[in-house]
Design a protein around this nucleic acid. Structure first.
Length: 619
DNA sequence: CATCTCACG
DNA sequence: ACGTACGTGAGATGC
């Protein structure tokens, strides 16, 4: 690394007036880029207030512009806080900064820039173009370590930044950033911008030397504004619907609870797996109970399901648990996420959350809203379109199996997809020598489980557990599968070997997923192998839908349609009723062509679409 | 704060 | 012989 100014928080500038700020704007324009960081009153960009802005133009040259820091007024008997000295008004600051923040010719560099871009957007400033050190780290090192700034600074700059905890405290007595004395805030905030700039200088050439520039430039960087926009739109959620469901669940749960106490002959905590296990295996003396590694009884659903046929107690626990899950995680918790001003729920997508290139969703997670059970699916009725609009949902059909057929070059599978065949039925037909016209649902179901297993890096044990069949039988299925599709085994062996040789696997689009555990011995080895087999398939599917999402804003421009949600292989839009047909057609075309022109797949991508006044109807 | 359980693709 | 399906986030319990 070239000689650089040491990271010294004492040297940063506190910007107090317009002249000082204009001097920074001049320096930014001379450079053509600037590292930017925002300080806010909270982590929720939709609710937090902007507290200050830090800038850095070269290592060690950083400043902080405080906006609304408050300090206890010594002469105020009521203890209310007064605005601290030496601050500019947010409107004055943004008036001066806007021209550079919105200037196409000036690159704004941030760590998790989506957060800062959303904050600025709420104050009417559209920040572009951007670079993001978190995403650079993710493109370089997915699968290796986390991409938070503290970790990156420690790892690459050998410097531990001032911790936010040291300023805010923790737990109940924690304060918000606007209560931090400005002098302390300058050191912390400007240091973050300084570190971000240094990381950027370090990562920029590495993207090239590690051959992930294309991944970063085409799959990471352009997705940031797309996700920011989706999150800010949010999706309308009907509180009354959720509230009614909560009440209904509570009533049913009370009934199950009484029944359980009756059977057990005593009261206990139904929500405690340990207490459920005590009753089943100690008190009732049932066989087959297993303990967790901490020595408590284990009572997962599949175990209870086996017992439920004989014992009402197990069946009622399952009933209770299902409703408890739906109530606490969905109908209750979702209500707290409805934004008081927009009436909508604004999730946050973590672009560097999953090692494979998938997104993750949090606060709330809208990627795991129930659908598999009838009762759970009804929760989707609470996700609604505005009056005069509909929700449309478009999802890729069998995208991972299609990608497997392509990358493993399995002619029979590729042809089946080209012919639009039922792929699970076709697999079953091949494996069990059953003509397609004689296919039964049960044979097809088994083949479907095998197809899923293949994507996950199949094992006899896993398939046996999933299908509830003896392990020997499951192993027989797998052997048979590889006999019929020998190319799949070759692909898997090659993938594992590639991981061992290179320390990573990669997707069709060049995304690297590091596999540091691939050389491990013992049980770890199995995990690492299966993860390595799965990653290029799951990752390529993730790349495809990312490409579609990146193309989408231009494609639907002019249409009265907004892209709201992504659920791994599905996109959800809110559309004026009159434009539903046209939007569906446009979106489908973008999704089905998302691989082009980067990768020409040997199989077609097929997208299914639905529509409705709510997500249950649209799905 | 770790563990268990369970919701999704 | 061993112990496993891949990838996530969240709520409740109990140390």
């Amino acid at each position: 690394m070239p000689d650089q100014a040491p990271i010294d928080p004492e040297t940063y500038e506190w910007v107090k007036d317009a002249d000082a700020l204009r001097a920074w704007v001049t320096r930014i324009r001379e450079r053509g880029y600037v590292a930017v960081d925002t300080e806010t009153t909270g982590l929720d960009e939709m609710r937090a207030d902007l507290v200050g802005i830090s800038l850095c133009v070269e290592p060690g040259q950083a400043c902080y512009i405080p906006l609304i820091h408050r300090e206890a007024a010594t002469d105020d008997l009521f203890g209310s806080d007064a605005l601290a000295e030496g601050q500019m008004g947010v409107n004055d600051v943004l008036a001066i900064l806007r021209p550079v923040l919105e200037d196409d010719a000036i690159l704004k560099i941030g760590q998790n820039m989506k957060y800062d871009a959303k904050m600025f957007a709420r104050y009417g400033v559209s920040v572009a173009p951007i670079d993001d050190t978190m995403l650079m780290s993710y493109a370089l090192n997915a699968g290796v370590h986390n991409h938070g700034m503290d970790a990156l600074s420690d790892r690459y700059l050998n410097h531990k930044p001032i911790s936010i905890k040291s300023l805010l405290g923790t737990g109940k007595s924690a304060i918000t950033f606007d209560k931090v004395p400005v002098g302390e805030a300058v050191k912390y905030a400007a240091e973050d911008a300084d570190i971000t700039l240094r990381l950027w200088q370090l990562f920029k050439p590495r993207l090239h030397s590690e051959k992930v520039t294309t991944v970063y430039e085409t799959l990471e960087r352009p997705l940031v504004p797309v996700l920011a926009q989706m999150e800010m739109y949010g999706i309308k959620v009907d509180r009354d619907t959720l509230s009614r469901m909560s009440n209904s669940f509570a009533q049913k749960m009370a009934g199950y609870e009484a029944e359980l106490y009756e059977i057990a002959g005593r009261e206990f905590n139904v929500q405690s797996p340990a207490q459920v296990g005590e009753i089943l295996f100690d008190q009732m003396g049932l066989e087959g109970g297993k303990r967790t590694k901490t020595g408590q009884w284990s009572t997962p659903a599949d175990v209870l399901e086996d017992l439920a046929a004989e014992h009402d107690f197990a069946a009622r626990v399952l009933d209770y648990r299902q409703l408890q899950k739906l109530k606490s995680t969905y109908t209750d918790a979702l209500q707290t996420h409805i934004h008081p001003e927009t009436g909508r729920v604004h999730t946050s997508y973590l672009q560097s959350g999953a090692t494979t290139g998938r997104l993750a969703s949090s606060d709330p997670n809208l990627q795991n809203i129930p659908v598999r059970s009838e009762e759970g699916r009804r929760i989707r009725e609470a996700f609604v379109a505005e009056p005069g609009k509909l929700l449309i949902s478009l999802d890729y059909s069998q995208i991972e199996l299609r990608i497997l057929a392509h990358v493993a070059e399995i002619d029979a599978l590729k042809q089946a997809f080209r012919d639009g065949q039922d792929i699970h039925a076709m697999t079953a037909s091949e494996m069990f020598d059953v003509p397609m016209e004689d296919m039964t649902p049960d044979i097809r179901r088994q083949a479907k489980a095998i197809n899923f297993g293949v994507i996950y890096g199949i094992s006899g044990f896993g398939l046996a557990r999933n299908l509830r069949i003896p392990r020997s039988e499951a192993q027989g299925f797998i052997d048979r599968y590889f006999e019929r599709f020998p190319g799949i085994r070759t692909y898997m062996d090659n993938t594992v070997q590639f991981a061992k040789d290179n320390g990573h696997v990669q997707t069709l689009f060049g995304r690297k997923i590091h596999t540091p555990e691939i050389g491990a011995k013992g049980p770890q080895a199995g995990f690492a192998k299966r993860a390595a087999i799965n990653a290029p398939i799951q990752g390529a599917a993730a790349d495809v839908i990312r490409r579609a999402m990146i193309k989408m804003p231009a494609a639907i421009e002019g249409l009265p349609a907004k892209m709201l949600l992504q659920v791994h292989d599905e996109l959800i839009f809110e559309v004026d009723e009159a434009a539903v047909d046209e939007t569906t057609s446009v979106v489908r075309d973008v999704m089905e062509g998302a691989s082009d022109p980067a990768v020409k797949l040997d199989v077609p991508l097929v997208v299914d679409a639905g529509r409705g006044h709510n997500w249950a109807e649209a799905h």
